[in-house]
């Protein structure tokens, strides 16, 4: 049995090309939906519930997230794949621990960022999107944010690839920049799908901007630009602290960490 499986042909170049195409289509779908929502159709939904905009936002972002998952998931090695459920549960469990500290932040992306740092941007994007889809089994309102979560995972992986996790002080900077992009991308979802945000603090900020006469999309985007960069800066810092606290033998098991020297330092003697 095992001998037979050794002689199985490796998945061909055609399958790889198909997966690459799926990834590109997914990213294109997310980008096109966002551009369409923001640039081409700013007719504000408060003039009547913009059901067509909602359908396009939901459809485009969800389709993009699903295509990304279908493209990335089969290419991940098993060692990375088994980490994804762990990341999803960490997103929940670490959020709960941080909740006991009484800080007014959400921290629902720690696991996603952790995987992105250890296993790279593709794994990060797949983890983010899957996290939203599976979390929606308990809370369906997170489902529309799958594309934003994928973007956070992807950007965290890119930050790790270019060495922003080698120094502790660079991680929050990368998180801040990620938060700006993720906030701007997620704001149309909050506006078109839910007509607002569900948190008390974020709701107060949106109300303040609305009281000044902003459109709903503008108010929510401004609120996202206030909350998200701060939240993501802290999440990136926590993920960096966690990765630094892990022993080398755990982190250097990941090819991505070794190849791009993600965490400055030498490989442990036993593994080299």
């Amino acid at each position: 049995m095992s001998q037979q499986s050794l002689t199985l042909p490796a998945p061909g170049a055609a399958a790889d090309k198909k997966r690459r195409l799926l990834e590109l289509l997914g990213a294109a779908s997310i980008a096109a939906t966002f551009i369409f929502l923001v640039l081409a159709q700013p007719s504000d939904i408060t003039n009547g519930v913009g059901s067509a905009s909602t359908l396009l936002a939901l459809g485009g972002f969800l389709l993009g997230a699903i295509l990304l998952i279908l493209g990335v998931l089969p290419t991940l090695p098993t060692s990375t794949l088994v980490l994804i459920p762990v990341a999803l549960v960490l997103n929940i469990a670490l959020g709960q621990i941080m909740g006991t500290t009484g800080l007014p932040f959400y921290f629902d992306a720690i696991g996603t960022v952790l995987i992105a740092v250890l296993a790279g941007p593709a794994a990060g994007a797949a983890t983010g999107a899957l996290s939203s889809i599976i979390w929606s089994f308990f809370n369906p309102t997170v489902l529309p944010f799958a594309a934003g979560a994928a973007l956070i995972g992807f950007l965290a992986g890119m930050a790790a690839r270019y060495g922003l996790f080698r120094r502790f002080y660079l991680a929050p900077v990368a998180g801040f920049a990620t938060g700006i992009i993720a906030g701007v991308v997620s704001a149309p979802i909050a506006a078109f799908v839910f007509g607002g945000t569900s948190g008390a603090g974020t709701g107060a900020i949106v109300s303040a901007f609305r009281a000044m006469g902003d459109t709903l999309l503008a108010a929510i985007t401004k609120q996202a630009l206030i909350s998200d960069p701060m939240d993501k800066a802290i999440v990136f810092a926590i993920a960096a602290l966690l990765v630094y606290a892990l022993p080398r033998r755990a982190t250097f098991r990941f090819p991505f960490v070794r190849r791009f020297n993600v965490l400055a330092g030498k490989a442990p003697v036993a593994a080299s």
Binding site: T46, N47, G196, G203, R210, A211
Partner: peptide
């Protein structure tokens, strides 16, 4: 209830009190 109560509260405060249109 965990999901919808905060959402309804937020929607009613936000749009009920501040709706420039």
């Amino acid at each position: 209830a965990v999901i919808l109560l905060p959402l309804w509260f937020s929607l009613l405060v936000l749009h009920g009190l501040f709706f420039p249109e």
